Simulated scan of single mutants.
Amino acid sequence: MPLALCCVSHSPLLDLPGPERELLDDIESALDEAARFVREFDPELVVTFSPDHYNGFFYKLMPPFCVGTAASGVGDYGTHAGPLDVPAELALGLAESVLAADVDVAVSMSMEVDHGTVQPLQRLLGSATARPVVPIFVNSVAVPLSPLRRAVALGTAVGAHLAGLGKRVLVLGSGGLSHDPPVPALATATGPVRERILHGGTMTREQRDARQEKVIEAAREFAAGEGPSQPLNPDWDRRFLAALDEGRLDEFDDWSNDWIAETAGNSAHEVRTWAAAFAALASQGPYRTALRYYRPAPALIAGFAVRTAVAEPGLDSDQTRRRP
């Protein structure tokens, strides 16, 4: 059965005051086109590769990858709060298959996911519970990080397993591209912030509201060319997207974590969710990208991109690489 792919950037600022209407309308148009692609494909199952922003995973135990056999949204930034429709046996079988393919992956039977997982589900499917979903956490924030090539290996193993399910599966990657938002870092966090990224705990409404205001203010500063965040890097973003569009996933073998952070910002590591998703699709052979949207969006503190893709059996690898 076929696989299809949709990768999108996410941002809590899509639903918060601040970004100009023209920017939001442009991005919404691209997301609407991606949602039409998803509706036409009509997936029976969605498998997400997504990061976390210290809402479900903390330094008390930080795996590089984790498959959820049950999951709930934490409800940050107005996204869905409560259980997702996760088929437990199918998710466990996926994890076992990935382990058998020599990719180390953890399993969570009570995964908590944030807007990085839930926002794309809501935008593309109408609601976070519209389809059965298997969430796969890809650590993209908490150092030390695995190399980008390991995300490709993860996606390849996942795709090989999905091909045998006999279902229409949508592979969804969420995150990136170049961006450097105010996410706490272990090296500099102190006091309650450090305690949270180490041990977690449920945030109060007041704490979430305070964090939301901090994000809005950081976006205002960044859009005005102020503040400590590293600038966006559209050239890097386009280089990354071109490698995906042309099927050159082996290019990521030499992309070091230090280089990614220095060139595109600390949260640019979220592109490993895209790399994993495209590797899952590539495990079925050559593919064709359809929707290709990209826009540097300082008001969202992100290089914002959307891609859709499908397997194309009649296309050979050389043709994939040559496509403009």
Rank of each mutant, 00 (worst) to 15 (best):
L145H: 13
A223S: 11
P231K: 02
L45C: 12
A264S: 11
R239Y: 08
I136Y: 06
P2L: 06
A268Q: 04
V133M: 09
T202F: 13
L186D: 13
M109Q: 11
T188D: 15
F222L: 15
L92K: 03
A297M: 05
A264R: 00
I260T: 07
V74I: 12
F222Q: 10
N139R: 00
H179Q: 07
Y59H: 12
T156K: 02
E213S: 14
H10F: 08
V105C: 09
I197H: 04
A35Y: 04
P63K: 00
M203C: 10
L244C: 13
A277Y: 03
G225D: 11
L145C: 13
E206W: 06
F58D: 10
D52G: 02
A268K: 00
E217Q: 11
S317C: 06
E195N: 13
R149M: 13
G159N: 09
R321E: 15
G78Y: 04
R322W: 11
Y287M: 12
A242M: 05
D254F: 06
R292G: 14
S110C: 13
A91P: 07
M109A: 14
G159Q: 07
R21C: 04
L232T: 02
A128S: 07
P181K: 01
D245T: 00
R295Y: 08
L170F: 01
V118I: 15
R239I: 00
K60C: 09
A189D: 10
E312L: 14
P192N: 09
R194L: 15
L244S: 07
G176L: 10
P192I: 00
D258C: 03
N266D: 14
P135N: 08
A218D: 13
F65E: 10
V67D: 06
P120F: 10
C66A: 15
